[in-house]
Design a binder for these strands. Structure first.
Lengths: 238, 238
DNA sequence: ACAAACAACTTGTATATACAAGATAACTTT
DNA sequence: AAAGTTATCTTGTATATACAAGTTGTTTGT
């Protein structure tokens, strides 16, 4: 936009240091420049610098040590959202792919939806889609997702194939998950899930229902998913 | 202790306001006294008051609104630790009881423990105990817990019957969970679990392995648990 | 070579002050 | 009665300064 935006100094300090940490300019365990050094760099006072460093500490980027300095922290592991993970540490060694079974479409909320929907959400309907995830060509997880139809223009026309829903929401809509809840059952796969996951109906699968809130109060993400955990598992960290 | 402890003013402000919120003196949605009012009350400056209010905001007690005030927030729901929950909202309507099958004992870490144990933890052994949880007299969850044997004097002699492990750790040792990870499988109950949970071996149960870190770096809590989710489910919020 | 004391660094706590910007209440005008 | 303006409240951003307390490196004494 052509309008000239002002950025407050303490926010610039936050962004500069955050970018430096995320770009690898500082490694876990490194000391950031001291408060006095940063005062000189930015030609400002300790109060301004300390406000920026306090914010970074609260976001988990650094740890403050009295008399020593600001130490770069281990990156935060996760928010607590369960997702499929490999038997070996991490999924990097395995091939995770996602097929869109149902492309995003706008629809009414299903009757008897598995989480209570409030009136304002109910009015606008939702965006619904479903995905099947494979690990090394083996289907392991089927997920149906319902997102409130608010503040997400042209979402339905975006491709989700092999892409992270959360990354799309972040990149295009500046939407980030802030909190949520998850409910977990172990069930026998029914006929539909058996077919989708290529397993016997007697096979135990994890069934999860999840509700996520975001930094945009209107945008909520609901999922129902079924996961075959014979070779893999669901994992979260917080 | 007889030694006179000094408390810094901004910390006193935090504690006073936190206690007032937790005691119900302020309800969700209420405005706290303005910064200027608090300056007068505590005979101090806005910088000191703002530091306290900033800390309360970061802990989730209040939300700051430019030009309006400090609004008391909805209490934070949870850290993301899965626990057994009822079919109806909350467990309050049902009777949850806990039986200690194995009282806390000190022992070596099991060979091939389900999470990697570092050398310093390994040396000291662990505290092990197991519990069976019932909902309305029905066994629903069996949990084995291993805690690092560090900074927990006389833990083995404490009664865990019908008491929250986390509350005991908080009350007696000032230990609070800060982060963790959980791994989830759906499995058929084996003979041992079938017997404990009073179900058929073909029955699907949730198997979870969890590792929790605390504000005391030495204290970590590992659990392996099995949950029958036919009438209930595991639930977390974060 | 080692221990103690000191100096110089760091972050933590605090006071004082000023202006920017958002929200709300009170007042005035239509 | 409604709309516009103004005043007064609020939090947000920022400068300047001082002392407390923790950490680390240097110097001195044994």
């Amino acid at each position: 936009m052509s309008k000239k935006e002002v950025i407050h100094l303490y926010k610039k300090v936050i962004e500069d240091l955050r970018a430096a940490i995320e770009n690898g300019d500082y490694q876990t365990g490194d000391l950031l420049p001291s408060e006095n050094e940063l005062c000189r760099s930015y030609d400002t006072t300790r109060v301004t610098i300390r406000q920026a460093l306090s914010a970074l500490a609260n976001m988990g980027y650094i740890t403050r040590k009295h008399g020593k300095g600001s130490i770069v922290s281990e990156p935060k592991t996760g928010l607590g959202i369960l997702s499929v993970s490999g038997v070996t540490a991490g999924i990097g060694t395995q091939k995770l792919t996602t097929t869109i079974l149902q492309k995003p479409i706008k629809q009414d909320w299903p009757a008897d939806f598995f989480f209570p929907i409030d009136d304002s959400e109910s009015k606008n309907g939702c965006i619904f889609f479903s995905r099947l995830r494979h690990i090394n060509e083996t289907p392991v997880l089927y997920e149906e997702t319902f997102i409130t139809n608010v503040d997400l223009p042209r979402f339905s026309s975006r491709s989700l194939e092999n892409r992270s829903l959360f990354k799309i929401l972040k990149e295009f809509y500046n939407v980030e998950v802030t909190e949520g809840e998850q409910k977990i059952w172990a069930i026998h796969a029914d006929k539909n899930i058996s077919a989708l996951l290529n397993i016997k109906t007697s096979h135990p699968v994890v069934h999860m229902k999840r509700r996520l809130q975001t930094n945009n109060k209107g945008v909520r993400i609901y999922s129902s998913l079924f996961c075959n955990t014979e070779e893999n598992f669901l994992r979260d960290s917080f």
